[in-house]
Design a binder for these strands. Sequence first.
DNA 1: GGTGATCGTGCGTAGA
Length: 756
Amino acid sequence: MTDSLASGSESGPPQGSRAFLLLHPRVQRWVWRAKWPALRPVQEQAIAPVLAADEDVLIAAGTAQGKTEAAFLPICSRLVECSGPGVRALYVGPLKALINDQFRRLDEMCEGLAIPVHRWHGDVSAAKKSKLVKSPSGILLITPESLEAQFVLRGTRIVKIFGQLEHVVLDEFHAYLGSERGRQLQSLLHRLELAIRRRVPRVGLSATLGDVSLAAAALRPLAPRHPTIVSPSNSGQELRVQIRGYRIDAPRDQDLGTASSDDSRTFKIEAPGSVVDICADLFEVLRGSNNLLFTNSRSDTEAISDRLRTMCEERRLPNEFFPHHGNLSKEIREDVERRLKEGRAPVTAVCTSTLELGIDLGAVTSVAQYGPPMSVAAMRQRLGRSGRRDEPAVLRIYVREHEVTEKTAPEDSLRAGLVQSIAMLNLLLNGWCEPPPPAALHLSTLVQQTLSMISRHGSVRAGDLWNALCDRGPFNGLDAPSYGIFLRDLGRSDLVTQLGDGTLTLGLGGERLVSHYSFFTAFQTPEEWRVCTGTRDLGSLPLSEPLMEGAHFVFAGRRWRVASLDEDRRVLYVVPAPGAPVPRFAGAGGTVHGRVRQEMLAVYQSAEVPQFLDSLAVDLLDEGRKNFARLGLHETPFLAEGTHVRFFPWRGDHVMDTIALLLQRRGAAVTRTGVALSVTAWDVDRLREELRCLARAEFASAVDLAAAVGNKCTEKHDQFLSDGLLAADYASKRLDTEGAYDWMVETLAALEAEGE
DNA sequence: GGTGATCGTGCGTAGA
């Protein structure tokens, strides 16, 4: 036998490695041929538990640490032994591009092992799909949506295809946590196990998991045991971080990125001082190497890339700055990715979170962040995009603060954007990041999964649906009577209807929903216009953006004029043109975690000046701290101001929203302004008294509070839910009454301690 | 007196 252990051990890598010895000789041979100097720590730790295949495993390790191989070296060791029919390992990935990357890697690994590797997503030909259905085998790489389609369109073949399944691998596991899509995936995996009447061990892979044990619980809801956690300590990679401060001396409406004008024909981008300063700095720092410049919005991405490209043109240099976001066409995006990967000429991608996930981009010198990061988790994910191998990871954060005048609102004088950036960086350096949000109801996805199950079986008893999806399934937050109300809601919208024998089948509306391919996604997508120039597809703009013929706008990092519109097909035909504002993209707003706000408070209360600030950022922090003290915020969170009162809870957004709703119930007019809440027509004493009443009275339920919220329909199928269920769903994902009461009790106690 | 306000992901078949 040529595949002997001896041939591997003489080459170096496996020596002293117990994990290596556990691998199949042919897999060992592959490692040897690949000339790996050694197994990576994450692989060393993951091989035994994945190979045992009796427990779930969560593998948390940084980018480029070899997580994929950590899962698939042992999986291939098992698969190489028996190559019978049926898919043996199922890999679920969140992106088509990522599946294509992983397909290439795995196919190369499995070539000599005679393990077939297949991929299945929207861009894979129907011929390849039907071939797999006819003779399923080996490893299958798939998206959650395509897996959903299998249940709906090939329900009777599920057992034939997956009956022999031994492993499930979930890549970029953090990308699903807390979302409708994540709940859909949990439900699909649960239904798969019900279909084949067997538990199949799951392997979750992620680079960013705030609280590993919470993420572990999401790997298999209601699991009696925790999964095995593989999380090697960081390899001590060097980290270079800096926060750079800038002052804005112009009024807000002239600011680049939110530019607007009554007459867009004459509008010119003339950015105020600070943006020019930032772009001049970005140009100097990033030019000549490969970088990622992350922004917090597509508008910012367009504005900054337009400015940087102009700077290249003014200097008669080839352009190095290219925009990359979700509304740009696939061709434009892939062009940027290819430029980065090839590395022929220096390239900086000005991007949104599109380039956060693990698509292969080659080596990147540094990462820049324009504006305060949205979350510590996102910042960590972005930082991880630079500094592969022995290079340091480099992150520069660019923060702008408005000049303070006598008109400036108090909360705007606190330099909250800068302080939030400092707080987040402090937390990152301490190894913290946001844990997954507590499990919400996700009733929109329960609509989808209910219809999907009925569609697969033709008709189902209500009790069986309840058992599979709720009682022992991932929607276990809903009790039986509520599921009864839920089903009646679906009946009222004609999504389901009851047959003579009492079972449920699809109604006309349900048939229509399920028979269209858009049914397979759990998430909502807005209607959009396609943007074309000549025959070239540039991307899409949301329908909410009204654009007339002759209007000018910036898109794909260039300037355009609308030549004509096709109303029926929703296409904008554009031609190049000078001068234009940046389009707005509708968005809902993110949430800041309470731990970040607590750290911000600590930054205000401290006198320490972090090493990672540049000189202007030091000045701005000093200003923020002085204003914090001047406003008396060391002594009290309340700030009287004319006819209204502001207060600063320093809690997360969910708690702040809940406090606002509680006060609204007492008749207050409350508005959120950044880190502050404002109550009009109340003074400080009245506010304190009302808070005392609230704290003494019985706790209000989050569902009751949510009932008062107006626009609760945000997810795909929310329109089918009655008010009570909608309020319960909203409360489960957006409100935190416990946190709100904690704040009230704590604040009142502190006031009383001061003798009031 | 009122501001300003995330991102991203995905899908199949029939018919020419």
